[in-house]
Design a protein around this nucleic acid. Structure first.
Lengths: 337, 337
DNA sequence: CTGAAAGCGCTTACAG
DNA sequence: CTGAAAGCGCTTACAG
């Protein structure tokens, strides 16, 4: 029976500490600490000895003690957008999973900040940082600056953005797809199939995502000398001479599909449809949607890597990371006859 | 300039500690600590004085220090199921949000555990607990026992389950809807509309959710003397004499709807359809689905409350909490003429 | 009702 | 390459 352990009763079990390991290995606690972080100062012989003691005793570090002593939390705060229904977008759960698993790979943890209102969300973000629970943040929404972003910037708190900020792109490290290219490539795919009159369909004309995809669409349409229009989807939705549609995302695509069917158009026989995001909505009902996979897993992984780089290397510049996308061919597009 | 602060440089800023507050308020650090937790031992006068100092200095507690000193993490680990695509089920993001916001209300934090494989997930769960990052867990999947649940139970780690465990229901605190009642009430709604021949449609016959909803369906159908059958949805799906369908969830309902349309049935004119979950999938295309809202927000909130109760009160029994549901009438059911 | 002191389990200059 | 010591910022018996 080991006396020093008598006070380490946690949840009814003895917690093994660095001291126990040190005693067992016949070294000082500071040596054990150095072995834990695999310091090059320590001899291989000692490392082996200490590690043996660690496994024999079943040692695991106490996270709180390490955080307190080192001053580094090794935790990243993940900030969700301040909207009520994050659950309707598979994107968020997907990127959260990816972030969590990448973080684990680098031995860091994550904490999350959510809020129905902007005010609540900001309170959570501030609290996470002021209680020294996180070293910084990955923010899962971009666009125009808000008071949370201002808070982060003015306090020089490390953070990266998933998406593209409307302003200060050179002062913010961010990770995104090339939305303009996404717009162009949709046109290219359709043009290759022989379509000459194409509409861009959206339910919102706000936000960077729409703006850039649409801009890419317009540029490529002009370049190829094709006929285009912009259609806002609402209850009066209908189409004219166009033989193909670029739709802003796959949820909207399902609605467009239904409306088209009502008006007597068959997809892809009468009109082709190409869309974005490759979420589950694209393969529930036929025609399964031809869509661009924006690679959410890599967006998440890159956000962690870039954040860690920002935190540790403290580069004096802020870069944009562009994640490649992939066209998934399914049933909703076909050659124009 | 305050000397004691010179060493508290965190992220380039002075961190205010309990000592700074104590000095400013002219009391001992231990008194400040007691004021923080609003101890009834401290006089109101002192509390006011200390709180004034706290706000003036902008004090926030250091989470790691508090955790280390108190031995309580005030953090709950949330365990997601070990499946690849959690993002296709809006349920998970919804309950995560609800759990996080309820936790915040009780001043506790959350950590998450995800993994593509059961093995990875278990590693994360063990790590969270052995590093003393969490006091216990909320597990977001139920059904048959797995090695994670066995680990939690045999180590007497506090946890609650969202869903109903197949075994040991009296030894596990869990939170769920009454799935059997959900099955019965679907029948009742349909019967009231005059339907006498009803099928239960599912794509999986595994899991508690199916079993209980189906059992409730069967019982109520028998009780009312109606004609029933069980239909497994696949590419050969078709219906016979039935005039109404109970479908296991709303994603499957969209597929069923499509298949019905192909076979020339109109919903709800020819056949009524009632389903479960009230996710976004029910209101994308027409007919909008009549569905049961299972109240995910309350499932999440209750899981936090019950966990905290388990942790603090250490009751010697394990109860089940049944969250009420609500029928959302939309377009997919109608009276049989 | 409040203070002084010990302790939580680590990390990290400093010294040798 | 390793040890001894101080310190991170709290909490909590113990004493008065």
């Amino acid at each position: 029976m080991n006396f020093s352990k008598e006070n380490n009763i946690v949840y009814g079990k003895m917690a093994v500490t660095i001291k126990d390991v040190a005693k067992k290995a016949g070294v000082n606690a500071s040596t054990v600490s150095r072995v834990i972080k695999d310091s090059s100062e320590i001899s291989d012989k000692t490392k082996t000895k200490v590690r043996k003691a660690m496994t024999e005793l079943g040692y695991t570090r106490n996270a709180a003690a390490q955080i307190l002593a080192s001053g580094k939390t090794n935790t990243i705060g993940v900030v969700f957008p301040p909207v009520v229904d994050k659950s309707s977008q598979p994107f968020f759960m997907k990127i959260l999973t990816s972030i969590n698993e990448t973080a684990k790979k680098f031995n860091v943890s994550i904490a999350i900040a959510t809020g129905h209102t902007h005010h609540e969300l900001k309170k959570q973000v501030r609290l996470l940082y002021s209680e020294r629970r996180v070293d910084g943040f990955i923010v899962l929404y971009a666009g125009k600056s808000d008071s949370i972003r201002e808070y982060l910037m003015s306090n020089k708190i490390p953070f990266v953005l998933v998406g593209t900020p409307s302003e200060q792109q050179n002062e913010i490290t961010h990770i995104d797809n090339d939305n303009k290219l996404l717009g162009r490539e949709a046109v290219q795919h359709l043009a290759k199939l022989g379509h000459k009159n194409i509409s861009f369909v959206t339910d919102t004309t706000e936000g960077e995502v729409f703006e850039e995809r649409y801009q890419g669409f317009v540029e490529e349409m002009s370049r190829q000398g094709l006929t285009r229009s912009l259609v806002k989807f609402d209850s009066y939705f209908s189409i004219g001479q166009e033989t193909a549609l670029v739709v802003i995302d796959d949820v909207l695509s399902l609605k467009v599909l239904e409306s088209l069917l009502e008006h007597g158009y068959r997809v892809p026989d009468d009109v082709s449809l190409i869309t974005y995001n490759n979420s589950i909505f694209g393969t529930i009902i036929h025609p399964f949607l031809t869509t661009f996979d924006i690679n959410v897993a890599r967006l998440g992984a890159a956000s962690v890597e870039k954040f860690l780089n920002l935190l540790n290397e403290k580069p004096d510049y802020h870069e944009k990371t562009v994640i490649p996308f992939e066209l998934i061919l399914r049933e909703s597009t076909r050659a124009r006859i």
